[in-house]
Computed example of a mutant assay.
Amino acid sequence: MKEKDRKLLILDDNPEILDMVTESLSIVGFSHLKRAASKKEALELLEKKAFDLAILDIMLPDGSGFEVLREIRKTSNMPVLFLSAISDIEKQYQGFELGADDYIVKPFRPKELELRILSILKRSYPEQDELVRLSACQIDFESAAILKDGEEISLTAKEYSLLKVLYDNKNKIVTFDQLLSKVWGDNYLGYENTLMAHIRKVRQKIEANPSKPTHLITVKGLGYQLRVD
């Protein structure tokens, strides 16, 4: 996948900045851009959709970009770039300590933003493997989608994370606790039923017959296994 086909989330409470960033990135060829103006909006988008990179402001009406990054890091290692008017070097250090990949101080040149994003994406997403082929579909981790019966079925952020953990451990048993910890973070107690609900949704997308799965198997009392030839 080309860098400019990646899915980007842009978070800023200033509508003028949102418009400028979106327009400048669209002009140079970025085609999948989603916008958020608050912490709440950003977290809702991150819950529903898998992104390849997030551009975060720090000062928000209902929290901070640091809080958004903390939530991202509970389930994802996707790259994050801070775009903020705060030039305090201590704040920049704080962003890097939380797992940010870069930090740009406003005002900024659109070309600098484009080049920084391209650099991060090239580092974070080297050439990937081909599609993962199952009997009834193909998993495209690059696009966070399932290719099935001539259709492209999008994966939610949680579905993507579950499948990625299972695929990284393909043909091995991944325990319930391991999956919960990887996808929901350390405070995963109480999410057991949510995990089962997401597994059902993933099966509906990847299996020919979800009620009789041949790839995403439940190992009774232990966890799940993704069987890949």
Results as ranks from 00 to 15, higher is better:
N171C: 05
E151D: 10
M1F: 07
F66T: 02
F82L: 03
G95P: 07
M196A: 15
L45G: 03
R227P: 00
R227C: 06
E142G: 12
K4R: 12
E3G: 12
K148Y: 06
K212E: 13
K148L: 04
L134K: 00
R123G: 10
L179Q: 11
A208T: 04
R123A: 09
S161L: 07
K122N: 14
M20K: 07
Q204T: 10
S143V: 00
D101F: 03
A197T: 08
K111D: 03
I104G: 01
E90L: 11
C137Q: 10
A157G: 13
D62F: 05
K212S: 12
D52R: 06
Q94Y: 05
R73E: 01
E152I: 03
F141K: 00
E159Q: 15
N209C: 13
E159V: 02
I58K: 05
K172G: 08
Q204G: 15
D57R: 01
P213M: 08
L25N: 08
R123H: 09
R6H: 09
N187Q: 15
R123E: 15
F176Y: 12
L115V: 00
K122T: 09
K7P: 05
D57F: 01
D177I: 01
L216N: 03
K111S: 02
S64L: 00
K201W: 08
L33K: 06
D102L: 01
K205N: 10
N171Q: 13
L147E: 12
L46I: 06
Q178L: 12
L8H: 06
R35H: 07
R200W: 02
K4N: 15
I27P: 04
K220Q: 13
Y191E: 15
D186M: 05
F66L: 08
M78Q: 10
L11Q: 13
P213A: 11
Y103D: 08
D168V: 00
F176D: 13
G150L: 03
D129K: 07
V21Y: 03
Q94G: 03
L131D: 10
V68H: 01
E114A: 00
P210Y: 00
D12N: 09
M59D: 15
G190R: 02
L113K: 01
A36C: 14
D52V: 05
D229K: 07
R123S: 14
E97T: 07
Q178S: 15
C137N: 06
G221E: 14
K111I: 01
S76W: 14
K172S: 12
M1Q: 15
I10H: 08
S124G: 03
G29T: 12
K170L: 02
P15W: 02
L162E: 09
E151Y: 09
A85V: 04
